[in-house]
């Protein structure tokens, strides 16, 4: 319970108490006809008169006193209160009003202001929450859009990589095929060259062997001398 609420409670309590106490004079109106009559008689005696005196004064005095007594049996007006009730009630009202103005109104005003401020704050908070929600929503939408874009990019990238891998594999396969063909051609060429070389070597071996045998049988003394002389001339010609 807040201080402002306690103030309001105290104000209401005091108002009720003041109403009860200030209403007591109104309650002083004679409650029974007998007491009312008794009071009328007392007032008569205090005024220095009496019933006998009234009778002696005449019928008009008696009638006036009777009318006065009849007031004791008249019911109070439901609309127009008694003067004293108006006074006491008005006083109580004024006291209560003053007290309410002094204590209650500021409290109520403060409570209203606080309530208004709280409502404004709640509205602001709601606006902020709404704005925050909108921002979060936009962020989420942006993130979603980014995620979609990233997913699309990844898909494109993966597709590109797959294409590249495919192209690489095809290129590598083509290279390997070309290399195998080239190697096979080179091997065939090498084998052919080797066979030709072997054949040429065999032929040359045979030819050289035959030539050597021919030379051995035909190199007589004169030919040897001629070879030596030619060699000597060749050496001499080197200078």
């Amino acid at each position: 319970m807040t201080r402002r609420t306690r103030y309001i409670g105290w104000a209401l309590g005091l108002g009720v108490a003041a109403g009860l106490f200030t209403a007591s004079p109104a309650a002083a109106v004679p409650e029974t006809i007998g007491s009312c009559v008794f009071e009328k008689l007392v007032e008569l005696e205090e005024s220095g008169s009496s019933l006998e005196a009234l009778e002696e004064e005449g019928e008009e005095a008696v009638v006036a006193f009777s009318d006065d007594l009849e007031k004791c049996v008249e019911a109070p007006s439901l609309i127009i209160p008694e003067i004293d009730e108006i006074i006491w009630g008005g006083s109580a009202f004024l006291v209560l009003f003053a007290f309410m103005v002094w204590k209650g109104f500021p409290a109520v005003q403060g409570a209203m202001n606080a309530r208004a401020e709280k409502i404004a704050a709640d509205l602001d908070a709601a606006d902020q929450a709404k704005t925050e929600a909108a921002r979060i929503k936009s962020d989420h939408e942006a993130e979603l859009a980014g995620a979609k874009a990233e997913a699309a990019r990844l898909i494109d990238e993966a597709r590109g990589q797959a294409e590249q891998v495919k192209a690489d594999l095809v290129a590598r396969a083509n290279e390997e095929v070309a290399e195998m063909r080239a190697r096979a051609a080179a091997d065939a060429e090498a084998a052919r060259n080797q066979a030709l070389a072997d054949l040429r070597g065999d032929v040359s071996e045979i030819a050289i062997g035959a030539a050597e045998r021919v030379i051995r049988t035909n190199l007589d003394h004169d030919t040897q001398r001629a070879l030596v002389d030619a060699y000597i001339d060749e050496v001499a010609g080197r200078g």
Binding site: R225, I232, D233, V235, A236, G237
Partner: peptide, 12 residues
């Protein structure tokens, strides 16, 4: 022949 060869080497 030896003499001529020696002379040829000398000349060369």
């Amino acid at each position: 022949q030896k003499a001529r060869l020696a002379a040829a080497i000398k000349a060369s």
